[in-house]
């Protein structure tokens, strides 16, 4: 009996509530941000970019994001060629790419930091290894050993007596990927990978391969940690052992953390288009950063966010 009463009450109340909400929402300033938004770039950032696109479409129904995510290297190329005005990268643009852009357009692209991430070295979940030093990491992955190891490490037994004698199977990303490039620069001291590195076309494939192969090791972004793999702890510059937790990344303790970037082709003094402005505003907003967290990345510091929001607010408005 009581339940029936409740329902009747609900039926009676809901139009009233609707009117109330209507009154509330009419006050929201109506805008008319419309138009296409096209971005090119990193596979790592594809997840957040697509979800930001979905949220943006909720806020501004007239905006649609089109994304092509094949690797960070495709972003500067597309920005320089003008194929897209937004480029998502999981590493900073290098001098060579920046010069090419300036040579074509006469100014630098605007760099925005949108999230923090970490490169995580992963092994199979049953691998007993706990942590790796920088030299060991280099000796495992590179053939050039620029970080100073005396000899290469090819078998697990070289890392400790209790490990099996199996050959270490290396998994990583293809050359166009920012993850590949950044790992090479930061973990291999700029050296080159071994030929034996399995180059997968996506980070998810790396995690899947490591999860399926007990004698393997690989590296992926923080958001690709899955059930089958375990993240290794790394030694920082002081020799302390740090796990790749969001907290360690937030504090900057974990050695292989990185920013994720958005590059915008914006001539100095000119305005962003409506959709671009709305997109960047969303990315830097608490909702945008919540997406970052939801996907397993690490949010930016409040200072960094404020600073970039101020920059966004300082831009001239599009007519």
């Amino acid at each position: 009996m009581a339940r029936v009463d409740e329902r009747r009450w609900l039926r009676w109340m809901s139009p009233l509530l609707g009117v109330l909400l209507l009154l509330l929402t009419v006050r929201v300033p109506a805008d008319d941000v419309i138009g296409p938004l096209s971005a090119v770039g990193s596979d790592t950032l594809a997840g957040p970019m697509l979800r930001w696109g979905e949220r943006l479409a909720e806020r501004h129904p007239g905006v649609r994001l089109q994304l092509q995510a094949s690797g960070s290297a495709s972003a500067p190329a597309a920005l320089t060629a003008g194929t897209a005005r937004l480029g998502a990268m999981s590493r900073p643009m290098n001098d060579h790419e920046r010069e090419a852009f300036i040579a074509r357009h006469g100014y630098s692209p605007v760099e925005l930091k949108v999230a923090r991430d970490a490169l995580v070295v992963i092994v199979h979940r049953h691998n007993p290894l706990e942590s790796l030093g920088r030299r060991e990491l280099d000796a495992i992955f590179s053939e050039s050993r620029r970080c100073g190891a005396d000899q290469g490490i090819e078998r697990w037994s070289q890392l400790g007596g209790m490990l099996p004698a199996d050959r270490i199977v290396l998994h990583g990303r293809n050359v166009a990927s920012g993850t590949h490039d950044l790992f090479r620069r930061r973990a291999l001291c700029g050296g080159g990978f071994r030929v034996r590195l399995n180059e997968h076309p996506g980070s998810a494939a790396v995690a899947a391969a490591v999860a399926a192969e007990p004698s393997s090791i690989g590296f992926v972004g923080l958001n690709h940690l899955t059930a089958g793999v375990r993240a290794l702890q790394l030694h920082d510059a002081q020799g302390r052992v740090v796990s790749p937790t969001p907290r360690a990344v937030r504090r900057g303790d974990y050695p292989l953390w990185r920013y994720l970037y958005l590059y915008v082709n914006l001539p100095p003094g000119s305005a962003l288009t409506g959709p671009e402005h709305a997109f960047l505003e969303l990315v830097l907003s608490p909702q945008g950063q919540a997406v970052v967290e939801e996907l397993g990345f690490v949010t930016l510091t409040e200072e960094r966010l404020m600073q970039q929001r101020d920059w966004l607010a300082s831009l001239p408005m599009a007519e």
């Binding site: 997840g47 996506g202 899947a208």
Partner: peptide
């Protein structure tokens, strides 16, 4: 540009967040 079933298989299997 357009989406394609075959490419969608490749993309979901290799480029997602979580293959599983």
């Amino acid at each position: 540009k357009f989406m394609h079933l075959g490419y969608h298989v490749y993309d979901t299997a290799f480029h997602g967040d979580d293959v599983q």
